[in-house]
């Protein structure tokens, strides 16, 4: 089994004026391929910083971090951009789709920066949208889609470049219960198909859809254990809840 995330003694220190804020204080974490990990913790626990570091949006101050075997600590800004493009698919709480841009063009975006030719780009984007059940919404712009549909577009965008890791930051935070369950259903299906998923959330019941929960407090990992009573999201259940 391949190790997707390997962190050794990772720290992150922010300087705001004269003040130093230790957001991460020596984190050790390994996540294997095919895992589905929920990162939990109260606000200020360092879970957002953790998400930024894992997502290569921010570099650790010290420590070793390997993503899919690549040493992220040594990469410069442009190398980080390429790692984000090839290795990571982001799903954000507020979707972060480009406004006034159709669903299919939003999904094409990572392929655009990966240098994939236009025709192949369009085909793969359509495929990705069909896989999240939005084959009939290709030309719709974000403001013409519901919250759940927008989040599915952003999942399609995250998947289109076949990343090794799907990184979701509070993906259900802006959605109602039924839609949340639909989204979690998609995540579980993807994980069953072998995709490694990291889910950052503060909702315990959402975290229980994952295989494993890593808890943060004061910039450190306080627990890392398998979910004993794992929940399964089904579409029927979603219908019932509605």
């Amino acid at each position: 089994m391949k190790t997707v995330i390997a962190m050794e003694n990772v720290t992150k220190i922010y300087r705001i004026g004269d003040q130093e804020i230790q957001a991460l204080r020596g984190v050790n974490l390994a996540i294997e391929e095919g895992d589905f990990v929920a990162i939990m913790g109260p606000s200020g626990s360092g879970k957002s910083t953790m998400m930024n570091v894992i997502g290569c949006l921010d570099k650790p101050t010290s420590g070793e971090f390997y993503l899919d075997g690549h040493p992220v600590s040594e990469a410069d800004d442009d190398e980080l951009a390429i790692i984000r493009n090839r290795k990571i698919g982001f799903v954000f709480q507020n979707f972060n789709l480009l406004p006034r841009t159709s669903a299919v063009e939003n999904v094409e975006l990572p392929l655009l920066y990966a240098g994939v030719p236009a025709k192949e780009r369009r085909e793969r984007a359509i495929q990705a949208l069909e896989s999240v059940g939005l084959g009939d919404r290709l030309a719709n712009k974000p403001n013409e889609l519901s919250g759940g549909q927008q989040q599915r577009v952003s999942i399609a965008r995250a998947l289109v470049n076949h990343p090794v890791l799907l990184l979701a930051d509070e993906p259900t935070g802006a959605l109602d219960t039924k839609t949340s369950m639909e989204i979690m259903h998609i995540f579980q299906q993807l994980n069953e198909a072998g995709k490694t998923i990291i889910l950052v959330t503060h909702e315990p019941d959402i975290a229980e859809y994952a295989k494993r929960i890593v808890r943060f407090r004061d910039g450190q990992v306080v627990s890392n254990e398998l979910v004993t009573a794992r929940r399964w999201a089904t579409l029927q259940e979603a219908e019932v809840m509605a």
């Binding site: 800004d77 442009d78 951009a81 984000r84 493009n85 090839r86 972060n96 975006l109 470049n161």
Partner: peptide, 16 residues
């Protein structure tokens, strides 16, 4: 700014 952030998160380099 937000659009630039999205593009960068998704893999746009500085030159892009």
């Amino acid at each position: 700014t937000r659009e630039i952030g999205i593009r960068k998160a998704i893999g746009a380099t500085r030159w892009d």
